[in-house]
């Protein structure tokens, strides 16, 4: 957590996060915590029946990981809008990196509303998810 309210400039990048390789246990844990038990995320046979080479991560897990970019600033504001398009699949063993860049800022009566482009990429540099976040830094 940061102690001072963040001030970002357009074009500035958030510190990116690279995760350890995705494990099947990560997916089992997320299934349990989220209640999404679609077996293509946990069971090889179900993934194979769906024509996949292996189990794939929940898109919502990738989105949650992109949300972590903003977690250090939740003492000063919150995500007002979080939009993601899922553009690729994430397999066990993939190494994801998430990042974001400031697009702009608008002052409102509640505070400064920053907009960010956010992404998740795999070890090959392929974008698996991309989107936009609007983060409101609240005025005290």
């Amino acid at each position: 957590m940061t102690t001072k309210a963040p001030v970002w400039k357009a074009g500035e990048e958030l510190p990116s996060i690279t995760l350890p390789p995705v494990t099947r246990l990560d997916l089992i844990k997320y299934a349990g915590a989220s209640g999404d038990f679609n077996p293509i995320h946990t069971i090889d046979e179900a993934a194979a029946r769906a024509g996949l080479p292996g189990v794939i991560a929940h898109g919502m897990l990738t989105m949650a990981v992109m949300g972590r970019l903003f977690s250090p600033y939740f003492g000063h504001g919150f995500i007002q809008r979080f939009q993601t398009r899922f553009t690729g699949m994430v397999f066990v063993g993939d190494v994801l990196t998430v990042g974001g860049r400031v697009q702009g800022v608008e002052a409102s009566d509640r505070g400064d509303l920053y907009s960010f482009d956010v992404f998740a990429r795999n070890q090959k540099g392929e974008t698996v998810a991309s989107g936009r976040v609007e983060f409101l830094v609240c005025r005290d």
Binding site: M1, A64, G67, R68, F70, P72, G75, H76
Partner: peptide, 28 residues
């Protein structure tokens, strides 16, 4: 499960001193 151990989600003492004065939930 999402690897986000923010004390504002987990630690009541920290949360009490925050802007919302209570624990919050992750965005998703």
């Amino acid at each position: 499960a999402i690897g986000d151990l923010n004390p504002l989600y987990l630690d009541e003492e920290v949360a009490k001193k925050s802007r919302y004065r209570r624990l919050i939930a992750p965005p998703t």
